[in-house]
């Protein structure tokens, strides 16, 4: 066993990698949210521009997606492995189990963010599947309903469905719950714990969780209310699906409305 595998198999090594990938994914959330918030500017044009720019360099995009995907995959893999090991470590369950911590603010009948990371992570994973099927593979999954549309319009159409928007709201809340523990916990796993900074890390973590949950959750409101879909766009022709791949964005498309 090389030192790398030995280290990565150890409990502390795994948590170290978990922390790094977690923080990396937090970074992704920041960029993702910032990008999405562009939907609120200029009736979608800015957002579309951003989306097209993102897709303008396929190699860079591919590399970025591979890294992102790897981050997710490692994070999820480690979660599954440690969860299995952790359950085995207890063996016989307690008949009664009660916390001795008196400082938790979020506590729903004993369910707290830090004790339910695997569950909240699983919910997020489920949400991720929906999300990817909507926006990454939307053209295949949703077919002609959105195929070929500009990104902002796709979002509008998908989010106008109250159930779908609800899923996104739940997903956003769970992401918030997950990072409310995950953010500062990653620092602890990486060994960053100092009385001078702990309070700050905690506060930033909470703020981050709220921003993420509210930020992403706001699209629920946007979807079911403000994000009303233009019937003209809804009935766009089927054939235009290839437009995105082949042609650069046409500013006139947005001025139609």
């Amino acid at each position: 066993m090389s030192w790398v595998t030995a280290a990565l198999r150890s409990s502390v090594g795994k948590k170290f990698v978990m922390g790094i990938t977690g923080l990396f994914l937090c970074g992704f959330l920041v960029i993702h949210l910032a990008g999405n918030l562009l939907l609120y500017i200029g009736d979608g044009t800015v957002y579309n521009e951003y989306a097209h720019k993102l897709h303008s360099n396929p190699i860079l995009l591919f590399v970025a997606e591979v890294i992102l995907f790897a981050g997710f995959l490692i994070h999820i893999y480690l979660a599954i492995v440690t969860n299995r090991e952790n359950r085995a470590a207890r063996g016989v369950r307690y008949a009664v189990k009660k916390t001795k911590r008196e400082d938790r603010t979020v506590n729903l009948f004993g369910w707290t963010p830090d004790t339910t990371m695997f569950a909240s992570g699983a919910v997020i994973l489920g949400f991720l599947v929906v999300h990817l099927s909507d926006f990454k593979f939307g053209d295949i999954v949703h077919g002609e309903r959105i195929a070929g549309l500009e990104p902002a319009d796709k979002a509008r159409i998908l989010m106008s469905d109250a159930i779908r928007a609800g899923i996104y709201l739940v997903g956003s809340i769970f992401v918030g719950i997950h990072v409310s523990h995950g953010f500062w916990s990653a620092f602890q796993s990486l060994g960053v714990n100092h009385p001078k900074y702990n309070d700050w890390i905690r506060k930033v973590g909470i703020a981050f969780a709220i921003i993420v949950a509210v930020g992403f959750g706001s699209f629920f409101v946007w979807g079911i209310s403000g994000g009303e879909v233009d019937p003209a766009v809804e009935e766009a022709p089927v054939g235009s699906s290839s437009v995105l791949e082949t042609a650069p964005p046409r500013p006139d498309q947005y001025t139609q409305k």
């Binding site: 409990s11 440690t82 090991e85 952790n86 916390t99 830090d114 523990h181 916990s185």
Partner: peptide, 20 residues
């Protein structure tokens, strides 16, 4: 840590129940 793991103890997930 290697021995800790071999003995079958779980990993730390920072719930801080131990401290309490």
């Amino acid at each position: 840590i290697a021995t800790h793991d071999e003995e079958g103890f779980g990993a730390c997930t920072n719930t801080y129940e131990c401290e309490a």
